[in-house]
Design a binder for these strands. Structure first.
Lengths: 103, 103
DNA sequence: TTCGTGTGCAACCCAACAGTTGCATACGAG
DNA sequence: CTCGTATGCAACTGTTGGGTTGCACACGAA
């Protein structure tokens, strides 16, 4: 099972943050490197990375004097499976209600 | 394919809104009915429903003089599948990079 | 017809959040 | 050693967004 889902969604629900995450999905990178690719300051990047990390979507690792961040696809997949389960449940329930109303 | 994902995530990324959506997943309801179950005003509920509707997660239907809203599990499942695809892609890419670095 | 209830619109408040700038520090390459 | 660069911390600003209240309106039941 997965803990609260909303922090994860909140983390994913910002365009800039999503873009950063997708970028990290292509290849790991440091905050400074990302700041050169995106039109925002390094500090803003750092804040986004922090949010993503707390949501379990990003993991960091010291490499020399750099802190390299990488996207955790596994976590994303876990959330996705949980989400799909819930969605199917809703539709099943709705179908049952409809059937009751008709029959 | 699915349009921009971030609005959907943003919609799901609020505890109250998520709670409302889950509630609608159990059974359709009107805004006024929901307002009696939740500790917030009807207007707040309406705003949340609006956000959810724009994200394609909720559909409304006039029933008598009531506007009844229901959760769209199918939409949730679609997003989930898209998400899982992306997550797997990231991990695959990461594994490839790792292999290159080792070999 | 009348009263109750469900909805819609608008203005307003406050907290959370994205983003900035400035400064201090630390560490690796040359 | 020294310079450049990557990081961390802190304070500040502007905007978004969740929530409220007030009012007008419309429709269904009694």
């Amino acid at each position: 099972m997965i803990g609260n889902l909303t922090p994860v969604f909140a983390a994913l629900g910002d365009d800039t943050r999503w873009a950063i995450l997708v970028r990290l999905g292509e290849a790991p990178a440091s905050a400074s490197a990302l700041a050169k690719e995106f039109p925002i300051s390094r500090q803003a990047i750092v804040k986004h990375l922090d949010v993503l990390a707390r949501a379990g979507l990003v993991e960091s690792q010291q490499r020399g004097r750099e802190l390299v961040h990488r996207a955790l696809g596994g976590r994303l997949s876990d959330v996705a499976r949980e989400l799909e389960r819930i969605g199917e449940q809703w539709d099943a329930r709705l179908a049952r209600i409809k059937k009751l109303a008709e029959g």
